[in-house]
């Protein structure tokens, strides 16, 4: 007796599933010979939930694994990483796993007593305490009871902000802070999302592109593309005022800047859909390439154009 697949005619041609179908009567497992042959260039090899990785006697289990019957077993689909005796599996796609000190972009979802809830693409909403924001009227000012009553003057539901991960609560929710002049409410731009794994840790996540566009690469995959603000116009320690930092009004943005913002946003979307990690050099190259092609901003999102862009960026390396 054998169990096999019928050759039922299929009309669908899916690109996401390129594996050949099983020939009849293949008994042994064709995917088990992964040890050497399928290694990726960077030494990590892909795995799937339920694959036995190693013995728990010799190795420690890390994230993305579990131990059953003295064996370390993968629990997510991703790549195996090994540091000395610690075996972890990094999921290829997942929500954002926060670490202390990460820069994130988020959106206020709720205003609660003395705290805001922020959607930062994490497993739970992040918390921004009233005591971890800069209040108008000086950095050193203490929070007053009146501040608690007018929290919506600072951040309202739907507002976007850039913040840093300060720590974690016992249930795993992250706590944010905006106690730096670089952090705070976002305006003059547009939000684009990408898978968090594509945003690598960089020296700086505030990127100024030569085309007059500022970019904030949040490690949670939220990316803010906005009009360039000159460093001198950003409020200094002395001139810190509520109007500037908590303002809800956009500045005037001229036509060329608007086009540039849309262009950069579309490039980020293309790179994200092709699963290309985002870096400042790559984005600049991509921007120049699209300008050279003399195409309109909306043509960027056609499939052919996106493929051509990614191919040219890869071949340039």
């Amino acid at each position: 007796m054998t169990i096999s697949f019928s050759s039922f005619p299929t009309t669908n041609d899916y690109s996401g599933y390129n594996q050949p179908h099983h020939p009849h009567n293949v008994s042994e497992d064709v995917y088990m010979d992964l040890d050497e042959g399928h290694n990726q260039p960077d030494g990590s090899r892909p795995t799937w939930p339920g694959e036995v990785l190693t013995s728990s006697q010799d190795y420690m289990r890390g994230h993305g694994t579990y131990v059953d019957d003295e064996e370390v077993i993968a629990s997510v689909a991703g790549t195996i990483e090994r540091v000395n005796k610690l075996v972890t599996v990094r999921a290829i796609r997942s929500r954002y796993n926060a670490e202390v000190g990460d820069l994130v972009v988020g959106r206020i979802t709720e205003v609660q007593p003395r705290r805001w809830k922020v959607d930062a693409n994490g497993r739970q909403d992040a918390v921004l305490m009233l005591s971890s924001v800069n209040l108008p009227g000086g950095v050193q000012r203490r929070k007053l009871e009146s501040d608690e009553l007018q929290m919506r003057n600072f951040f309202e539901e739907g507002d976007l902000l850039v913040a840093e991960v300060q720590g974690f609560f016992s249930d795993g929710a992250m706590s944010l802070h905006t106690r730096s002049l670089r952090y705070g409410k976002l305006r003059n731009g547009q939000l684009v999302t990408a898978p968090p794994i594509l945003v690598r840790r960089l020296k700086t996540h505030f990127i100024v592109l030569p085309c007059g566009v500022d970019l904030i690469l949040g490690l949670n995959g939220y990316i803010w593309v906005s009009k360039h603000v000159k460093a001198s116009e950003q409020e200094g320690e002395e001139g810190f005022d509520a109007e500037g930092v908590y303002s809800n009004v956009n500045d005037d943005i001229d036509e060329t800047t608007r086009t540039a913002i849309s262009r950069v946003s579309n490039i980020v979307r293309i790179l994200a859909s092709h699963f290309v990690p985002l870096t400042d050099t790559l984005l600049t190259e991509a921007y120049d390439w699209t300008v050279d092609q003399e195409s309109g901003v909306k043509n960027l999102l056609t499939e052919d154009f996106g493929d051509a862009l990614v191919t040219s960026l890869v071949s340039r390396s």
Binding site: Q19, D29, V30, Q40, A77, I92, P277, L313, V314, S317
Partner: peptide, 26 residues
């Protein structure tokens, strides 16, 4: 399971390769 695993592995490898092809640029 073999079919499903094949599809998952194919998808994972595709994404890993897409990310890896850019590393030389970085």
């Amino acid at each position: 399971h073999r079919e499903m695993k094949g599809a998952v592995m194919g998808r994972t490898s595709t994404l890993v390769n897409a990310m890896g092809s850019q590393q030389s640029v970085d």
